[in-house]
Amino acid sequence: MDETSGQDAGPFSGRPSELIGRRIAGYRIEREIGRGGMAVVYQAKDLRLDRTVALKLLAPELARNDTFRGRFTHESRVAAAIDHPHIVPVFEAGETDGVLYIAMRYVAGRDLRHLLDREGPLTVTVAARIGIQVASALDAAHDHGLVHRDVKPGNILVAQGTDSDHPEHVYLTDFGLTKKSLSLTGFTSVGQFVGTLDYVAPEQISGKPVDGRCDVYSLACVVYEMMAGRPPFRRDDDMALLWAHQYDQPPALSAVRPGIPDAVDAVLAKALSKSPDDRYDSCLAFVSALRIAARGAATGGGTRPGAETGDVPGGPGPVPEPPAWARPVFRS
């Protein structure tokens, strides 16, 4: 490590530009490419293998928590062991100067958040094509006992595909910093989450045990947004949004975007069920059903039980009338 590595400042102090050109754990920082509340991602050069990588530096307070450090090490190893074409490969994870870091493949492209902001709603065909790649990645992670818990457009990278039949190649990223890791350390609690609340499953909000079906719900929120141009629920504040995920039925996609087959509404309703038991068992099962529905074929799913009466499937009865602060927001 060079002479700057021993400075008291540390990798997270000062302005981001101060890290450009600095060497950290065998990587030379070149530019910042992403930032969140608990981590910063840089494009960096691997000085040992002379390759470009994405280097994520986690906030220093996380490294000072022994529970998080243990969880981070375990989940990073699991993520690195997953060899899948739609999961960003993890090259290395470790600690240097009191900061945890993850080195991953650098993907030249943009994330789905930027794509949607620039191009607006996508066609059903494109949404399903992106969704099936994300679903495949999630199911592979579930097979390794890893639940992502933070599926959102910002964690889906869209790179150039191989040919006209595969115009985009999608990667799922950010397995190394899960909500489970943070909740075990006290950095999060019920009602406080890392990242946006637009895609969080009801059981995550209530603090119940989660499995891969919480990723089914989050993926369904992302797929809905890809086609509608907005997430299923929009509210004025976080508490109202949490209420909506737990109790409100999402607007039918066909009401937001005319021309969508009714069968697509039924598939999304099932994937967005409040109870995990009422959702698809896997992400691929959800997106496969969506593709069939989009072609106008019969899905056999019908209307979700309780959709007409307002009952929550698997719930204790009628949904309570939302208080004024939890009512929907309608914006043009």
Rank of each mutant, 00 (worst) to 15 (best):
L112S: 09
I102G: 01
L112F: 05
Y101F: 14
T73I: 11
V107K: 04
R110C: 06
E92M: 08
E95I: 10
D83M: 07
R118Y: 00
D117C: 04
S76H: 12
D66R: 15
P89I: 09
M104A: 10
T123Y: 03
T73N: 08
H86S: 11
L115E: 11
L100A: 06
D111A: 07
E95M: 11
P121G: 04
P89V: 10
D117L: 12
L116C: 03
G98A: 08
D97I: 05
Y101N: 01
R77T: 06
R118K: 11
F72Q: 02
V78K: 12
M104G: 03
G94V: 03
T67Y: 01
D117W: 03
T96S: 15
I102W: 02
I82H: 12
Y101S: 02
I82S: 12
Y101K: 03
D111V: 06
R105W: 00
V90Q: 10
G109R: 07
D83V: 14
R77V: 01
A93C: 09
A79F: 05
G109D: 01
H84P: 08
D117A: 15
L112T: 06
P89E: 05
F68I: 02
R64Q: 15
D117R: 14
L112A: 09
V107I: 14
R118V: 09
I87F: 06
L116F: 03
H74I: 08
A103D: 05
E92G: 05
L116A: 02
R113P: 00
D83A: 14
I87W: 04
N65T: 08
L62Y: 09
L100E: 08
V90L: 14
F68V: 03
E119P: 00
A103H: 02
L116N: 02
L62R: 08
G120L: 09
H114P: 00
L116D: 00
R118F: 00
